[in-house]
Computed example of a mutant assay.
Amino acid sequence: MNVSFPITSNEILLKCIPQRNPIVMVDVLYAFNDNEVSAGLSINSYGLFIKNNTLQEPGLIEHMAQTVALHTGFGYFLKSETAPTGYIGSIANLKINRLPITGEKIHTTATILQEFAGITLVDIICQINNQIIATAQMKTVIAK
């Protein structure tokens, strides 16, 4: 399948992740390869995780998890297969330097460290204007 980046189509993105509104926390897929995925989110003034025009910690963590889900899901999308449902298995070394505010755009990159038997371990970096706002290591698990 021939695709070009960035992908902003809600139709394509929703085929790659199990979440549905109001919990969709990715709105662009910037890049994808076997070892890495980059996704983004524009912070709006409305939403489940917005308080005082600021995306709260659970929303930022959910954005990280959905970025990882995009890696798995987009791989399935390219093969014209249905993306599986996955879960956060663990979060380690989470560091939030600051929270994003309304009007900002998060650019998140997840680098695959290990992938085996439906378990994926990744390093995640969230940035706004090339400034790191959060980092974490996350393990996700595909539902059986």
Results as ranks from 00 to 15, higher is better:
I50F: 05
V26F: 00
K51P: 00
Y30V: 14
S45C: 04
A31G: 11
A31V: 09
N35M: 13
L13R: 05
L60V: 11
A65I: 03
V28R: 12
A83W: 00
P6F: 05
Q66R: 05
E36C: 12
I43N: 03
L48G: 10
F49K: 07
F49A: 08
I17A: 01
E62C: 07
N10F: 06
V37H: 00
T8G: 07
S80Y: 03
A65P: 01
L29D: 01
P22I: 09
K79R: 12
N35P: 01
Q56T: 15
Q56F: 05
M25I: 11
V68F: 00
L14V: 06
S38F: 04
M64T: 04
I61D: 00
Y46E: 15
M25C: 04
R20C: 11
C16N: 02
V28G: 04
N53Y: 09
F32E: 03
S4M: 07
P22D: 12
E36D: 05
N35F: 10
Q66A: 11
I7F: 01
V26M: 04
P22Q: 13
L70Q: 11
V3D: 05
V68N: 03
L48H: 13
N44G: 10
F77S: 03
E57T: 11
A39C: 15
S4V: 15
S9P: 02
P58M: 10
L55S: 10
S38W: 02
V3S: 05
N21M: 12
A69Y: 00
F5W: 09
L41D: 08
V37I: 15
G59T: 08
S4I: 14
L78H: 01
Q19R: 06
L14H: 09
P58I: 05
S80A: 08
L13P: 03
S42I: 12
A65K: 00
L13W: 02
S4P: 06
R20G: 07
T82K: 12
T67V: 14
N35K: 15
E11W: 02
H63N: 15
F32M: 09
L70E: 05
P84R: 10
P18T: 13
I7S: 02
Q56G: 06
P6M: 01
V3W: 05
L48M: 15
V24G: 08
F5P: 06
T54D: 07
S80E: 14
F77K: 02
L78I: 11
I23Y: 13
G59Q: 08
L60K: 06
L48R: 13
P6W: 03
